[in-house]
Amino acid sequence: MIRLEKKGRNPFIVYGEEKSIEEQLRRNILLTTVDAMLKWSRRNSLWPLPLGLACCAIEMMGAFFARYDMARFGFEVFRFSPRQADLMIVAGTVTRKMAPIVKRLYDQMSEPKWVIAMGACAMAGGPYNSYAVVQGVDNLIPVDVYVPGCPPRPESLIYGIMKLREKIKQEREAKIL
C-alpha cells in the first residue's frame, strides 16, 4: 500500500495566498506525488460499465454519442466486461431478479471503482413502489453520485460525472489495493 500525500490538498490548485518556496516550486516545476498523479489519471479516464436496465440507457447512449460526446472528457471507453471498468452507471430499474447480477458485476469490477445511479428508478425505485423493484440501488452497492431525472438529460449525466470527478479529486488518498 502506498501512502504518500496526506495533506488533503490538491497539487493542481494554485493557492494564491501561499507564497512559500514550496508553493513556488509547485507552481513552476511539475512536482507531484504519486497519489495526485494517480487521481488525475483516474478521473480523466473513467471507463464506464454501462448497466442499461431501462429507458435511462437510451439517454446514456445519447450522452456517449457525437452530440454530447463524452469522449471529450476521456470517458468514452465503454467496457462491457466488469474487470476492465471502473465506473458503473446503473441506468434504469433494478428489479429484484436483476439485483444479484448487479451485485456480482460490481464485485467483479476491480478496485478502485465508482457507481453512478442514473434516474429515479436506480436512485430510489422511482415510480415503481412495488414488490418487484429494488427501492434504490444503494440497497445493494455503494453509490457515489445520484443523477435525478426520469430519464435525466445527457447533460445531467455528464454533470453527474463531473461531480464524480470532483469527488475523486477530493478523495483523501488514492485507493490502491
Partner: peptide, 12 residues
C-alpha cells in the same frame, strides 16, 4: 434547471 446530481440520498 437539470443539473441536479447530488452525492447522497438524503440530498435528494
Amino acid at each position: 434547471e437539470y443539473e441536479l446530481a447530488v452525492p447522497t440520498r438524503k440530498d435528494l
